[in-house]
């Protein structure tokens, strides 16, 4: 049982950090499809930073700076150049995937995967089996609660929601929706950097091209599944991690009888069903009508 919990925590934690970034963006009125790109930038920067400097803090710091800069770029393109947020987000994902590949090629010549000499600090043998979990797994609940408090229990959170849902009303009481979106996206950039670092340095010590393998899009689905609520979205991300772990377990147990492709598709089937149920419960048609539009009136 402990093994299963550890597997779920390890696979769920990167997803949850990125999901929280998606929640912040969604509250500000932006459906963030650049999560995949930010996540891989964070994963790559953490490993390259550690390899180049020998310091985990430098690796994390570089990841955070790059993800915040990329988020600010996304904001500029959406807010100032009036680009469609969905298209701009997908563009950021392309930039992240291509940019990290280019960076690795430029720095290491012909190395597709980069190995770091060490990973994120872990709990250690004192915690028994759970000692393999990284510090970011332990901090994850703190971030979930912090984002929930920030968005649901503070004046800033209300201003952010107003900026996303009723920018005109927000502006009429002196809130600048554009600035709120910038802050939300940049905070999301920090969370994506942490999620990416956990992916590449939490249980592994490696960066490989395309290693996010669609996790950013699953985080986006978790945001929709969770209705934009940090706790709901975290629950959705955990649900996807559980289904993923069960998919592996099912392959090992029933791989002889059930096609492996079907078992591998389980998390994605669960994602589609989850988003469909969420849409039914929360008025999906209404949400879909505003999907991709940046409210600015």
């Amino acid at each position: 049982m402990d093994d299963t919990i550890i597997a779920i925590l390890r696979s769920g934690t990167p997803l949850i950090y990125v999901t929280l970034a998606g929640v912040l963006a969604q509250r500000s009125g932006i459906w963030h499809l650049g999560l995949e790109g930010l996540m891989i930038i964070g994963a790559c920067a953490a490993v390259l930073g550690v390899v180049q400097s020998g310091s985990i803090l430098v690796g994390l710091g570089i990841g955070i700076v790059l993800c915040v800069l990329a988020s600010a770029l996304l904001w500029f393109v959406i807010e100032k150049l009036r680009a469609n947020p969905i298209i701009a987000g997908l563009g950021l994902t392309g930039l992240g995937l291509g940019g990290t590949d280019l960076a690795v090629q430029a720095i290491y010549g012909s190395q597709a995967s980069v190995n770091a000499p060490f990973g994120l600090p872990r709990l250690g043998p004192a915690f028994g089996q759970y000692g393999v979990l990284s510090i970011l797994v332990v901090l994850m609940p703190v971030f979930v609660i912090a984002v929930w408090v920030l968005t649901r229990r503070t004046r800033w959170g209300l201003q952010l929601a107003a900026s996303g849902e009723h920018p005109f009303a927000a502006r009429s009481v002196g809130v600048n929706p554009a600035r709120m979106r910038l802050i939300a996206l940049c905070l999301g950039g920090v969370l994506c950097a942490l999620g990416g670092a956990e992916l590449s340095m939490g249980s592994l010590q490696i960066f490989a091209y395309g290693m996010t393998a669609g996790r950013g899009f699953m985080a986006f689905a978790a945001v929709i599944f969770g209705g934009g609520n940090p706790l709901g979205a975290t629950g959705a991300a955990f649900f996807f991690a559980i289904v993923g772990a069960l998919g592996i377990r099912a392959q090992l147990l029933f791989g002889e009888r059930v096609p492996p492709d079907f078992l591998l598709a389980l998390p994605y089937i669960a994602t589609v069903i989850g988003v469909w149920i969420s849409g039914k419960l929360r008025g999906g048609a209404k949400a879909a009508a505003s999907f991709g539009e940046l409210k600015d009136y």
């Binding site: 696979s11 992916l199 249980s203 592994l204 393998a213 993923g244 592996i248 791989g255 492996p260 591998l264």
Partner: peptide, 23 residues
């Protein structure tokens, strides 16, 4: 016992499957 990661570029999934196998 055989299993497939669903990708040739997903070391995290490979790690997860291998851990379950070793356990």
């Amino acid at each position: 016992t055989g299993a497939f990661a669903g990708s040739f570029q997903d070391p995290a999934k490979g790690h997860e499957i291998a851990n379950q196998m070793y356990q």
